[in-house]
């Protein structure tokens, strides 16, 4: 069992590299890493240019690292999330439709090993991308702004990692439950929107994993963070993997 999981994990990693999935993610993270501090820094100038052409005067407070961090969180929790869903939605459903899943299923391989190996590759991909983004944002911010809390920023990235992991695990789980990648993608997108809407409400909404975004900012500012979204993230991931195994077990190739 142990060595089979290792074999599967290695296959997922090789596939991630050869299918350009890891590269795409790394480059997107690189983009966000550079663009977040840069766009925050030049925002007043951009607004000034727009203002001049429209005869409006914008008075802005001086930009700080806070604007860069806000951009960073926004980029990853919006476009970054959609791209994460896009990259993960085919992980199992794609193998169902091209027949390669049957290659694994006739061999003595446990379904949970297949799912685990995919989650393992997901964790690798997220860590790879966020490391790149953290380093680039760190370098740019230290250069552009007076003072940047590097260590809290790195710790906040752990929360971002959890955020993306939840999204990826939910997408992979859905991917194992449906027949087509696009269905998994749309389903996951729907769930993400529901959680985002919940998160905007008070009460139970404070348990939404999407709250991890605002917790990142709390953490950087030195406030204590709420454990609610962290606990709920764990529950969501375990729940979706559980459901997925339950449904996946009954899957039979059709046509």
């Amino acid at each position: 069992m142990h060595s089979i999981l290792l074999t599967l994990a290695r296959k997922e990693l090789t596939e991630g590299f050869r299918s350009y999935k890891f590269l795409i993610w790394a480059i997107i993270c690189g983009f966000f890493g550079i663009l977040s501090p840069l766009s925050a820094y030049y925002m007043p100038e951009v607004l000034a240019i727009i203002g001049a052409s429209q005869n409006i005067m914008f008075t802005l407070a001086e930009v700080t690292y806070r604007d860069a961090v806000a951009q960073y969180v926004k980029n990853f929790t919006q476009i970054g999330s959609i791209i994460m869903i896009f990259l993960a939605m085919g992980s199992v459903a794609g193998e169902k439709s091209d027949g390669s899943l049957q290659f694994l299923l006739v061999r003595p391989v446990k379904l949970r090993a297949i799912l685990l190996s995919k989650i393992f590759a997901l964790v690798f991909m997220i860590i790879l991308g966020l490391s790149i983004a953290t380093i680039l944002t760190g370098i740019y911010s230290l250069y552009l702004f007076s003072g940047f809390p590097l260590v809290p920023f790195i710790r906040a990235n752990m929360l971002l990692m959890l955020y993306l992991l939840v999204l990826g695990v939910v997408t992979i789980s859905l991917s194992a439950m449906v027949q087509k990648p696009i269905v998994a993608g749309l389903g996951s997108l729907g769930l993400w929107l529901v959680f985002s809407a919940l998160g905007a409400l008070g009460g139970i909404g404070s348990y939404s994993f999407t709250k991890l975004g605002s917790e990142m900012i709390h953490l950087i500012e030195g406030f204590s963070i709420s454990w609610k979204p962290i606990v709920s993230s764990m529950i969501i991931m375990m729940g979706s993997v559980g459901c997925s195994l339950f449904v996946f077990k009954r899957w039979e190739p059709s046509n």
Partner: peptide, 22 residues
């Protein structure tokens, strides 16, 4: 209509299969 991983080489596929069978 077999589906084999198109990104693997033939040798890699056989090696992968062998490992899965221990």
């Amino acid at each position: 209509q077999p589906g084999f991983y198109p990104w693997m080489t033939g040798r890699e596929l056989l090696r992968f299969s062998g490992k899965l069978y221990g």
